[in-house]
């Protein structure tokens, strides 16, 4: 019997509350046996320690981009992934992580020293302002049904399942 081919997946998190990461671990309650069989989590900090960023079929990216360091990492993920999926409201729209973009001048002055100290962008960006995004899974947290259908389509597209 030949070894089961698996979908090469990365799960990445930037600036957000990680609600979609948690929802993904809850969806595992019903789907873990399939995922164990069909998905090779190459990079998922919430699940494992030995993470590698090499060629991926699909990168799921949660959160907004708040610094050049994050943007650089996102561009690297994009280069190495055949498909990039924006997961949850912060990745798709920037909000609510980008709420500081709308602060008034006085509040901006209050937080400016922190932004400077940690080299944060003046404005928080959604993923599509930094890289090309192939699929959006919006929601706060992400819409679970839509997410499962994206996983299912990817498994078919990359010929993991018929």
């Amino acid at each position: 019997m030949s070894e089961q081919k698996k979908l090469r997946v990365g799960w990445f998190t930037f600036t957000c509350c990680e609600d979609s990461t948690i929802l993904m671990t809850e969806l595992m309650n019903d789907h873990w046996q399939d995922w164990k069989k069909y998905i090779d989590f190459r990079h998922a900090r919430v699940l494992k320690t030995k993470n590698v960023l090499d060629d991926l079929d699909v990168a799921f990216v949660e959160g907004a981009i708040a610094s050049e360091e994050q943007a650089k990492k996102l561009r690297e993920i994009r280069e190495k992934s055949k498909k990039l999926v924006a997961i949850g409201s912060c990745a798709v729209l920037g909000m609510p992580s980008a709420q500081r973009n709308n602060f008034d001048e006085k509040t901006m002055q209050e937080i400016q020293p922190i932004l400077d100290k940690f080299k944060q962008y003046p404005k928080v960006k959604k993923l599509s302002e930094v890289v090309k995004v192939d699929i959006d899974v919006p929601g706060c947290p992400m819409d679970p049904k839509l997410f499962l259908s994206v996983v299912d389509s990817a498994l078919r597209e990359f010929k993991i399942i018929e």
Partner: peptide
């Protein structure tokens, strides 16, 4: 990265506050 909920809560209607602050985590 910080998301500044302490600042963002100012000026918001109190009835919507619990839902806003849920997004901390």
């Amino acid at each position: 990265s910080k998301r500044f909920f302490t600042q963002a809560m100012r000026g918001k209607p109190v009835i919507g506050l619990p839902q806003l602050l849920a997004r901390i985590c």
